[in-house]
Simulated assay, not measured.
Amino acid sequence: MSSDRSIDNEVKHPIRVGILGFGGLGQAAACVLAPKREALWVAGADRQGYAYNPTGLNPDECIATYNQQGSLGYLKPDGFLGDRSIEEAIENATTVEGYFLALPNLPNTFMASVARQFIEMGWQGVLVDALKRTSAVEQLLELQDELQAAGITYMTGCGATPGLLTAAAAIAAQSYEEIHSVKITFGVGIANWEAYRATIREDIAHMPGYDVEKARQMSDAQVEALLDKTNGILQLEDMEHADDIMLELAGIVSRDRVSVGGIVDTRNPKKPLSTNVRLTGRTFEGKISTHTFTLGDETSMAANVCGPAFGYLKAGIALNRRGIHGLFSAVEVMPQFLH
C-alpha cells in the first residue's frame, strides 16, 4: 500500500468520543484515547453523573475524581450529577460522534436497553460495545432495523473475545474449504478484582451454579468470599460467548463448532496462560490443519479490549459518514488503526 493511501485513510478532524461507564474498562479507555491525535475524549458518564467538555477531558483528573468521589459528576467545572446520567449525556454532549459502551451488561438486557435509549432520543452516530454473551447480541439483532432507520452505525462484539480473536478466526478461515472448529482460550491477569468489578461478575455468571442475575446480585463481600475459595482463580469453560453467533452469521462456521473458555487470575497481573484462537479446517487439497493466533502475554485485557474497540469505532465513523447505518459485528468489518 502506498504512503499516500495510508495518509488518505487518516481522519482529517479528531473524532469526538464519549465513554459510557467509568469503571476499570472505561478508565482504561480514557487512557488509551489520551495520546491519539485522531480522536478526542469529550464526554464520560457513570451511574451518578457525567462530564462533558467539547475541547477535551483530562483522563488523570477524571480518574482521580471518580476514584475519590465516586462519580464524574463531581468533576469541576465539567461535571453534572443526576440519576439520568446516560440520557443527560446523550442530550447535552452534542459534539459526540461515537460512544464506546464500556458498561456492565448486567442484567443481560442492559445493552439493548441503552441502544434503545439512543434510538428514542433521536441521536445519530456510532456506537461500539465489547459485549460477551450470545443472547445479548441476539437482542441487538432485533433492533437492527430500528438502528438503521435511526441513522446509527452500531458495532457489536468489538473487544478481545468477542472481537479481536473472532476477527482473527474469520481471517484464518480463508485458508480452508471447510471449518471444523474454532477454539478460543484466554488468560487474564489483574492485580485487584475491584478495579474490574463488573467484568468479574460477568465472568462469574458463566460458572456452574451461577447465572447473570445471581452474579449481579452478589455483594462485593460475596464475590470476595468466592474468590477466597478459588484462590482468586476463575476457571471458565464452554462459555456463552457471542463469538459463536458472529462467526455463524458471517457464514464461516456453525455456532456449535465454536468454543470459548479461559482462566482469570484476580490476584496477579501476570496472565495465567497465553490467550489464543485455534481454527482447524480442511483445505481444498483435503489437508487437515490448524491456524493459531496468540496474543502477546505482555498485552493487558484493557489493551486488547479498548484498542480494537476504538479501531472499530474509527471504521464505524467511516461507514456512518458514507450513510451506512445498522448493526455490524467485529467479523463483518475490518477495524481501522486509530492514530
Rank of each mutant, 00 (worst) to 15 (best):
S3C: 05
V11G: 02
H13T: 11
P14I: 02
L20H: 05
G23M: 05
L25H: 10
A29Q: 03
A30S: 13
A45E: 01
Y50W: 10
N53V: 02
L57N: 04
N58V: 11
D60C: 11
N67M: 12
Q68H: 10
F80T: 15
G82R: 11
D83H: 14
E88T: 14
A89C: 11
A89I: 03
V96Y: 07
F100N: 04
L103D: 03
L103M: 13
Q117K: 13
F118G: 04
Q124V: 03
V126N: 09
V128C: 05
S135Q: 09
A136P: 14
A136F: 14
V137S: 03
E138M: 11
E142M: 15
A149G: 02
G151W: 04
T153C: 00
T156E: 00
A160T: 08
A169V: 01
A170S: 07
A170K: 03
I171L: 09
V182W: 00
F186Y: 15
W193Y: 08
D203Y: 12
A205E: 00
A215D: 00
V223L: 01
V223M: 01
K229V: 00
N231Q: 12
I233T: 04
Q235F: 08
E237H: 12
E237F: 10
L247W: 07
E248D: 02
L249S: 15
R257H: 14
G261N: 09
V264D: 04
T266V: 01
K270A: 12
P272I: 01
L273F: 05
L279Y: 08
L279Q: 05
T280Y: 11
G281D: 01
G281P: 03
F284D: 08
H291A: 14
T294W: 12
A303Q: 15
G307C: 09
F310Q: 04
L313H: 13
K314I: 08
A315N: 10
A318E: 11
G323I: 12
I324R: 13
A330G: 09
E332H: 14
M334A: 15
M334W: 15
